[in-house]
Design a binder for these strands. Structure first.
Lengths: 160, 160
DNA sequence: CGGCGTAATTACGCGCCTGTGGTCATCGCA
DNA sequence: TGCGATGACCACAGGCGCGTAATTACGCCG
């Protein structure tokens, strides 16, 4: 009936269409990003026509961060570099920190470190994004769209 | 002999080619930006083939700020919006402040105000750029390139 | 006044990102 | 096991932001 049925472990996935709807991007963007290796669905990748991609909650968070960066006028190419860097150098819990992009340098930091960085304010542009607020917005969108897919649990348990 | 001859008032202009060289962008970019109304030369605009554009020092500063934003991965379209907003709402001395772009809001602020903004860190991306450092870099580039155009005064008198 | 250098103009092409539309494999369901 | 819905795949189009190259016009200088 719905593609958001909870599995036996309570960890549900999101289909491509639903992921795009929740995040607030077009399906074509989601598709393009998946096949150009920006964000691949971590639960189930596509394997030919007719297969189904399955996005995790964490994937949605990444997608939403990317959407925020795009909305802020940042080029997709730049977003790609930032995320490839992040994936190689950071495994910390992303949701708690603030993302800072400064040229080719990317880092996650907490509030005080952030103030420090901004105060010294190198010689380039700083792109600053609080992941926490992104997560809040994402959860709100999830609750909104949950009405269309009744049997799904709300993601409250995932708040970290 | 040179297109950077100082006039009787000491206020010299920069040709298109030199402006591009000093700022560090291609001539095609400068040309494109001029004819699409991003930055027009304030001393003398083009008037047909064979005419000469004349950029002021202030123009160079704007161009350099734009270059910084582009280098940071910000889309030209977004830069356009920011500058059209700035030109309509702000006549303060740009060189002293910090430029902050937050979605469709653009503002110039000093150090303390900046910290305040970052601390509360709205729900989007903040693009932060200290204009002072841009000006410093620009002046350095001017001094470097002055060797190619000997008779020109250094822009030290223009420091704000 | 006629060549010469500079530079603005124009035409053309490319790569990126994305929207549109159609095709086709797969899944859910009866 | 066939049928309809879903969604991945593919071909194409289009705008933006330039690069490249040729063309045209101005200004200077001999």
């Amino acid at each position: 009936m719905s593609d958001t049925m909870a599995g036996s472990n309570g960890q549900m996935g999101f289909s491509g269409t639903r992921a795009a709807a929740v995040v607030g991007i077009s399906y074509r963007q989601l598709d393009y990003w998946a096949r150009t290796d920006l964000v691949r669905p971590s639960l189930a990748d596509a394997s030919g026509s007719g297969s189904r991609r399955q996005y995790s909650y964490r994937d949605l968070l990444e997608l939403r961060v990317i959407k925020s960066l795009l909305d802020a006028g940042i080029k997709l190419e730049s977003v790609r570099k930032a995320f490839s860097y992040l994936r190689e150098n950071v495994d910390a819990d992303i949701a708690a920190a603030t993302l800072v992009i400064s040229g080719s340098d990317v880092l996650l930091c907490d509030g005080d470190t952030l103030i420090d960085i901004v105060r010294r304010g190198g010689q380039g542009v700083l792109n600053v994004l609080a992941i926490g607020s992104v997560k809040t917005d994402l959860d709100a969108s999830l609750v909104e769209l949950a009405q269309d897919a009744p049997a799904a649990d709300l993601p409250a348990a995932q708040a970290g």
